[in-house]
Design a protein around this nucleic acid. Structure first.
Lengths: 319, 319
DNA sequence: TTGAAAGCGATACCAT
DNA sequence: ATGGTATCGCTTTCAA
């Protein structure tokens, strides 16, 4: 592989001149320019990024720490993140860490080793580590001194709940998983609690630590023991789908007998029917903000501690 | 940030000795070892990977070129790829390139620039570029001189079709998208054609270039104009789901009136019901082989031109 | 056992 | 306008 020295030698100029040509920076005579370009062509030369990285002390790469890319919400956000980072001249390095906290700790080291310039942090584990000086930004999760981007979980949930009430539901239930760490997503339940207090709606809910994949089982047991439910607010699309299927099996019509509103909106892009009525998170906007704030942080600029991205309420066929 | 020189100076030894300690390589006296470790501790030193990369002329990073990570099959394969690469000491760099061939061409450059040591190539675009000398491996797709890993599309499809026949279907149809480039996935249709010839099953199919997201529309039109169908082999889970929903709307019972078998199996992990009867691709095995073969290639070792990974036939509720 | 020094590939200061 | 040279942080040869 040819290096900048080979090009310089062949062109009969110094490496500085070659560097100037490559980066279109500084004064280069027409004559030198042509000689250098010819040499580059001839040697099929490509500047080595590793050398640049070392000199520049950055890698133009961002790490994405995610529980698993194999989940529709996470893969969607990853998609937009990669797009947005590419536009800003960065690459995205993917790290799935669900079920492997050691891996996460080990790879957090990619910041001091220079392999990544910063990290977008979307995972659950908790350590006693000080993140506040690191170039990190989180989605949904609260970590001391680390900026957090999140949807307007509370307001959007309230809106969804009042919509169900307006549509005539008298016994609105909540079903959703609880986050293991302090997270904005828990405000979906908080909104439900407040809604019950405000309106006198009976408090009927499932809200606990759980694993992905258990939705159907939980939904079934919950629905079986709560025949009075006529409105359902689910904290995720996967739960909404599980509930919808459960009612379908029982021959209970949705939305006539029971109305369902879900928080998320990613399943609608994947599965054409049923079109769920959802609080749709603006995944593209969230990704854009995560990137914007992280790059500010890398640049040692001031950032907000937390930022709320407005979601959309989309009426589908389930409520 | 402390460098190896700072450590050497503080410990009162040469950089060589520090390097030996870090990499546990070569002879180091007990005394020197302790001094170095103490200095490392004191300076909170972490070896810089950028320097290592430059010296070693590799980045221990593999690029994954994928149409979009936001598709259940691709995100699943990405999950397993990252896992497997991590075990081998590599990182995964993600590139979504659907709708952006220029991006793909530009980033292919990460090989000569040293940003990635190799590429796992799962996209559709076609250029007149010679890939045969590059450290690349593909999933499903044929490119001259590039190793290809794929499922046993033909045999598995045949098996699925004969299963439908055995279950009593007389009018078995095929529905699926056609790949724009030479790809093993097209053998799903080839198997159907051969099946019709072998058994005298009438040839009823949709097989054309299409976009993700059009499944429902296509399925509906196809089913509307082919009332005779009593068995359906779909080339993807998203199609199977679209067909299932269409029959559901029409009040036609699956699997009693129409049986559906799908190729893929990723939707079953996401959505609990219906449990589709599927040819389930061994995504974990595929990922393992992609990594194994790519690393061989990077190492300039001989590899097979193509490798078939056996899939599993899983009986669910739709056939 | 140890360390000085060269070298990986690129950039940039500074003199010319 | 141009190029010699030092430098980024690390590994490795080779001589001591």
């Amino acid at each position: 592989m040819a290096s900048i020295h080979d090009v310089a030698k062949l062109a009969g100029v110094g490496t500085t001149t070659v560097s100037r040509v490559i980066n279109k920076k500084g004064y280069v005579s027409q004559e030198a320019l042509e000689k250098v370009n010819k040499a580059i062509e001839e040697l099929n030369y490509t500047p080595n990024q590793l050398g640049k990285n070392l000199k520049a002390k950055n890698s133009k790469t961002i790490g994405l720490f995610i529980p698993t890319i194999s989940h529709p919400f996470f893969s969607r956000i990853a998609h937009f993140l990669e797009d947005e980072l590419y536009k800003k001249g960065y690459r995205l390095l993917l790290v799935n860490s669900q079920g492997n906290p050691e891996k996460e700790i080990k790879l957090l080291n990619m910041i001091p080793t220079g392999q990544v310039d910063g990290i977008i942090y979307i995972t659950y584990y908790q350590y006693q580590m000080d993140f506040s000086k690191l170039p990190i930004v989180t989605l949904d999760r609260h970590i001391d001194g680390v900026p957090c981007i999140t949807s307007d979980n509370y307001e959007a949930s309230k809106k969804a709940l009042y919509y169900l009430k307006k549509e005539g539901c008298k016994n609105i239930a909540f079903i959703g998983g609880k986050a293991a760490t302090p997270s904005e997503t828990n405000k979906r339940f908080l909104a439900y609690e407040d809604f019950c207090k405000e309106t006198g709606n009976p408090s009927i809910y499932y809200y606990d630590l759980m694993l992905h994949g258990e939705e159907k089982m939980i939904a079934k047991a919950f629905i079986d023991s709560h025949k009075e439910i006529d409105g359902l607010f689910t904290a995720s699309d996967l739960f909404a789908n599980a509930c919808y299927q459960t009612y379908l099996e029982k021959g209970i019509n949705v939305p006539e007998k029971v109305k369902i509103v879900s928080f998320d909106g990613v399943l609608n892009d994947l599965i054409p029917e049923p079109k769920f009525t959802v609080v749709k998170q603006r995944v593209d906007e969230i990704a854009r903000e995560l990137v914007r704030v992280l790059l500010l942080r890398i640049d040692n600029k001031e950032t907000n501690q937390i930022e709320y991205i407005p979601s959309e309420f989309v009426i589908g066929e389930t409520a």
